[in-house]
């Protein structure tokens, strides 16, 4: 697995996997979870990132999500786009599925 970059004061969001479904989810401003990165709460500095992650970890303890973590995003576009390709794939789904007809 590629190493997560060290986050400084840059746009970032919290992501995790939903415990029941395993789906990729993002923490929203309302402290709930959404499958769409467009709904993610974007913060832009280390302190706000830490606070967002703390909230997510509380929810992990309540058995809603698994292993939340912060990822850097490009917030100049809508929806925000993850910087790492691994996270782009998590946000958009496998690049191979797009070419595949639904069964």
């Amino acid at each position: 697995m590629a190493k997560a970059p060290k986050l400084n004061s840059q746009p970032q969001v919290v992501t995790a996997n939903h415990l029941l479904s395993g789906d990729v989810v993002y923490l929203t401003k309302a402290a709930s979870w959404s499958r769409r990165i467009a709904d993610a709460a974007v913060v832009a500095n280390v302190e706000a990132g830490a606070a967002l992650l703390a909230e997510a970890e509380t929810q992990a303890k309540k058995n809603i999500v698994i292993a939340p973590y912060l990822i850097p995003v490009d917030a100049s576009v809508t929806p925000p786009k993850p910087i790492q390709y691994r996270e782009v794939l998590r946000a958009e789904g496998p690049s191979t599925e797009k070419a595949r007809p639904a069964a």
Partner: peptide, 17 residues
């Protein structure tokens, strides 16, 4: 590969294709 696997560093399927 990276299309599905949490351990992968790069995609395998698209390059195979």
């Amino acid at each position: 590969g990276l299309d599905y696997c949490a351990l992968a560093n790069a995609r395998s399927i698209p390059i195979a294709q």
